[in-house]
Design a protein around this nucleic acid. Structure first.
Lengths: 112, 112
DNA sequence: TCATTAATTAAGGAGTTGCTAACATAGTGG
DNA sequence: CCACTATGTTAGCAACTCCTTAATTAATGA
């Protein structure tokens, strides 16, 4: 993966439990890298890389204040991901509903 | 990635334009591997591997009829993914609303 | 039986991920 | 200036991704 499309980058970023946990943490407000790293038993470089993936996907923003990097969540990419999933899920469910109605109609005419 | 959790497998499966296009195709009804492969310029084995990823994530089901493998979409995993995204997006938006209200309140008291 | 069609498995290569240890950078405060 | 704290970068490695070509399995039909 390199110059992948935005949606792929977002889904890719979400495809890791550690990164999802980080986003969950950020849901409760901005946090420094140290705070985000604290619950995990992995090294700081590993944390840095996870943050880089999240940043590349546009899911977080990092601002430097003194020697602390504060991370904040951004929701726009989540919106894009959400839209895709919802759209597909909904349209498929519509198909099921349609099928369901058709089956019911068929049963109705057969029974009548 | 190997014995990853379900949610990671789903997001991982969605993190590829070819696979998302395949799912979009399947939204319009079941299809054989050949039909799914048709819009792409990649080899059949590559298609097979993409389908394997989708199957591992529980997003499709394959049934063999004669020499054709019919693929059908499954939405349960999409529901799980959707839930995660929605939950996070919503709670974050709530936070923004709260912040917004506070700022407005603050402004109100300052103005008064 | 043999050729054809549909799809998968096998083997391998280029590039990426996710981790580690070691080193570098940058700001704070004695 | 020097030690300390917070974070990032580099180098290296095992595992995985996504693709390929070649061989294989499985069903159809002359």
């Amino acid at each position: 993966m390199d110059a992948r499309d935005e949606l792929s980058l977002v889904f890719q970023a979400l495809a890791d439990p550690t990164r999802r946990a980080m986003l969950s943490h950020l849901r409760d407000g901005a946090a420094t890298v140290g705070e985000l790293a604290e619950p995990f038993e992995i090294s700081r470089p590993a944390i840095s890389q996870h943050l880089k993936v999240l940043e590349r996907a546009g899911l977080i923003e990092r601002t430097a204040t003194a020697q602390w990097r504060t991370c904040t969540l951004r929701t726009e990419p989540l919106d894009a991901a959400s839209d895709w999933v919802e759209r597909h899920r909904d349209e498929w469910n519509e198909r099921f509903d349609l099928l369901d109605r058709r089956l019911r109609d068929l049963k109705g005419t057969t029974d009548a």
